[in-house]
Design a protein around this nucleic acid. Structure first.
Lengths: 192, 192
DNA sequence: TCGTTTGTCTAGCGATGCTAGGATCAGCTC
DNA sequence: GAGCTGATCCTAGCATCGCTAGACAAACGA
């Protein structure tokens, strides 16, 4: 048994290595540079090994996305729990979200721009994604306003953050007034 | 001279054909299906002909994006000019924007998701893009609120619409309550 | 009528994601 | 300890991608 267990451990370790390497490479040189050949070379295995862990490149992207979602959820929880009052919580939430997107562009792409084969808004949505949304929901429910469905409000708030994040990073929005835009968003959307 | 002019006309016509075919193919089967080979086959010319009109695939995407931007700008103008009062104008603006994105997903991708090699928020931004932004700006200035820079407000409003459009189409947001989300967006962001 | 230019096509390059089939090496049995 | 077996990994290759070089033909000006 012990032999099998060791092999399983090594396999799991190698899988983590693949995901970490893909992420690192994507952050360094963009997802276009993450080819199966380059990835294989970096982990010092041959190409087909990747396919014994993942169905294909899509699933590797999906794995990076899940890792990112878990981190983002944790970051949002940490930021909101350290803030005092609804106003500060929402502001911290928005700031942390955009900060995460700006600091981890490749991961953010894996989560929301690229096709990682993940299910959203379903019952079979992976847990880390649910957690991240729940982190948003928890802090936004208290400022949704009377008669407004918290889930719907959270979806809208999230969409606005997502729009700001992607348009800014793609150079569609000038980066200088990011903070003022976030401030305006919080002031207007949240019923304080 | 007449001969040269005829040739120029034919060239311009063929260029329009390329762009229209690329757009059609993208709407039918997605941008992944728009390969230079397939595109060349559809227009009944060989592959290198494409490269005598455009530097590469990116530029073809960019051409589709510009065409789309012009159409979107026109649609926004038409919708807002037919609406009475600031409230109705903003609602029409938002509805038309999301409707355009939903009806022309491939074109919307070309404009905002894919790399079409276009400059944004610069002085050398192509006119159709400026027009589309100006259409937003014109209807949103009157509801920006006191002391709020209209351009900044427009950027935020646009980002929110963009987030709703992309997340909905990518299956990240359930499509059923789209209208309620738009209503909430208009009610909260606009100072009426 | 004869070069020259302009336009188009065939063929091919390097790179992509992915896979088939053979080699190698660990573990187990006698 | 020898031989078998099954898992593990690699080499080699496929089809397809964006893009380009060089050959060829048609249309033009002299």
């Amino acid at each position: 048994m012990s032999v099998q267990e060791r092999k399983q451990r090594e396999r799991a370790e190698r899988e983590r290595l693949i995901v970490a390497t893909a992420r690192e490479l994507a952050e360094q040189q963009g997802w276009d540079a993450v080819t199966t050949r380059r990835l294989a070379e970096r982990i010092e295995y041959s190409q087909p090994v990747l396919y014994s862990h993942f169905r294909g490149k899509r699933e590797i992207i999906g794995a990076v996305a899940l890792e990112g979602a878990a981190e983002m959820a944790a970051a949002l929880r940490a930021a909101t729990s350290a803030a005092d009052g609804p106003r500060a919580r929402v502001a911290a939430l928005a700031g942390t979200y955009l900060d995460f997107a700006a600091r981890n562009p490749a991961v953010y792409d894996a989560m929301f721009e690229l096709d990682g084969g993940l299910a959203f808004a379903h019952e079979d949505t992976p847990q880390p994604l649910k957690d991240a949304f729940a982190a948003l929901l928890d802090s936004l429910t208290e400022v949704a306003g009377d008669g407004v469905h918290p889930g719907l409000f959270t979806e809208l708030f999230w969409a606005s953050l997502h729009g700001l994040a992607t348009l800014t990073r793609a150079g569609r929005l000038p980066p200088e007034h990011t903070e003022r835009r976030v401030e305006l968003l919080v002031n207007r959307l949240a019923k304080l």
